[in-house]
Write a protein that binds this DNA or RNA. Sequence first.
RNA 1: GCGCCGGUGGCUCAGUGGAUAGAGCAUCGGACUUCGGAUCCGACGGUCGGGGGUUCGAAUCCCUCCCGGCGCGCCA
Length: 722
Amino acid sequence: MPLNDIRNRAAAALAAAVEAEFDHAPDEVVLEVAPRRDLGDLAWPGALPLAKVLKRAPRQIAEAVAARVEWPAEIVRVEIAGPGFLNLWLDRNMVLSGLLLNERSHDEDNAEKTVVEHTNINPNKAAHIGHLRNAVLGDVLVRCLRHLENEVETQNYIDDTGVQVADVVVGLLYLPEAVIAECLGVETVRRDELIDRALALDPGGVPAASTSDFDDFCWALYPLVTARYAEDEAFKAHRAEILHAVESGEGGLELDQALQLLRGAVIAGEAVPPRAIERLAEAVADANMRCHLATMARLGVGYDVLPHESDILHLGFWQRAFELLEASGAIRLESEGKNAGCWVMSLADSPEFADMDDPDKILLRSNGTVTYTGKDIAYQLWKFGLLIDSDGSRHDFGYRQYADWSQEAAAAPVSYGDGAHRLASTSSDPSERLEGSTFGAASRVYNVIDVRQSYPQKVVKEAVRVLGHPQAADASIHFAYEMVALTPAAVRVIEERSGTSFGLSDEELDKAYIEMSGRRGIGVRADEFLDVLVDAAEDAIVDRLQGGGAPVDVADRASAIAVGALRYLMARQSRNRVLAFDFDEALAFEGDTGPYLQYSAVRASKIFSKLMERRGEGRFGGDELDKLGDIEIPDDLWGLVFECARRRDVVEQSVANLEFSLLAQHVHNLAQIFHRLYHSNPVVPEKDATLRALRRAVFTLFDDEMHVLLEELLGIPIPEEM
RNA sequence: GCGCCGGUGGCUCAGUGGAUAGAGCAUCGGACUUCGGAUCCGACGGUCGGGGGUUCGAAUCCCUCCCGGCGCGCCA
């Protein structure tokens, strides 16, 4: 029986006893986990605060309550300790057998639909390690919510119409051919041929991860465009021209046709037709998005739907949101002052914004275009199913199948192909539907975005509220986390490896960390870092085997270790602390790391294979419970059993606080306890059959628990061998 | 200026008002002819940024000050 269940029943019993004894209902009866097992398993400190109210000594209160409580069967011993703590001991055998039989707790199922939006990488360059923090935190949240029986839809928003994509197109069309060729690592040829070659890096479909894809080309090209803007004001005119072409919305061209038009224009020395530019931008965004999906697939991160910004624009989400905002009086047209000609939302009535110099937020610019926040409001309303047309129906996207994907095990890489999971993309044709699927219309929405987006996120939440949806506003949750930055040492490593210099000032290099910047090209690309991790893991595997060469499955082992190291690194740090990335620390495989955890699970399963080999005994089955007789579970083994029983508490608390360092710490603690027991409680050589059965039972429990915690919840694969 | 976040051993970080502030790294010293040493045991190391307050009890809550970071665009 999981601990939370026992705890709830014990707390209810306590509350009843307090009320019966003192005719006083306590505010809230909270049973804590006792700080040390020698102080019991659960503890109630409630007698101390009651002392004042009841005007009696806390120990006296505790004694009187203890004498009255009708404890659940799992509580076998009660003691009063210190100033008045009520310490409780559990029936160890009952808890162990409950866990081995996988008894469920009595929680209600949560049928409400939850949307989690994460990853959201601009499709104009390769993902960097900062994006990995977003994706890992978002993915772990999704996994935990599903573990807690929630229906979850995972969205990865594709900002395919912004200036960032346009900038890459500017680079392709207007940077010197020699510069583009260098980014591609090829000889200089005519521009249209260079563009052909660049697009050839997009393998179509969703590729297996590789190291030199279209996104890496863009990673090199994009900073050159922004640098050129800085030194040549006239060059910026190209950005406006491309943006205009992208937004023209003529569409309808196949990529081949667009490239033909482009070729003709290049040869003739004429301007490229806007229709061709629009299609080229689409190809750029699409290719980068595919590369991002492939990168995330390596980590076992998959999605349900890819909402495209271009579809939000084409389908008039904002226009409809505007009508709703205007009708509700939430926005007004400014006729004078600095915001003259703009539609603004006043936030002066919201307590959180009241102190601001200017509590008005512009949603529609004086030139008639919508701001980013405006689009976001429309999107947020859609997520809740609150973007309603005048006829009462939902204003919705069209949808088409983008890909199928599968995952062999809970933490295995995602592979795109004929899989059990469907990945949908939005489309701008609302008549396109996917049978059996409804998207959006959730009752709770988590937006995983870094903390710098707190202000716009608050505005979006407030907009939902002023539109008359206070419940949805309260259920709009910004999962904020601090950014990933680089230590000066890490920057030096990248500069050395790439043979380039970012030209950072001494002042910048003197800081504790340096912010990554795709615009300046400063950063560690996600795939690049994963490759470094895999290499390091392979070296470690070979080293530790002490001769004999590499095992045949070294690549699989190394990738599991790399993913484990990375995901744990991202999960263990509390979210509102800047993660200063350092290669040495990130490549550590010992101590408080992913591989330490993986090793504990590998070790546990190794016990069972040896046990089978030497004694013909396997994992402990639920039908073997009688073999334990009435053996007393000693303190050290009980420590492990008790921690295993706490899982649901830990997961619930992690989700409630959006703090997965709690979960990480819990797994680490569990692994640590196991490693100690491994040395002190050998199984295979143990001659006493009952004691051996007990150890086998406890380690079976641990093995099962690690599969849930690592694979199902943290997405960390457990290799067969390391 | 206003707002948010951080300041905990040499370093990197945990720590839901509760009992002796915990890990990892680093340093030093140890451990198995037993299931794999990516392990384990021990030692060293802390005025929890400073000061005041609330409380039976404060790293945790309140006030104030100091240091560091971020946010407050008709940018995206």
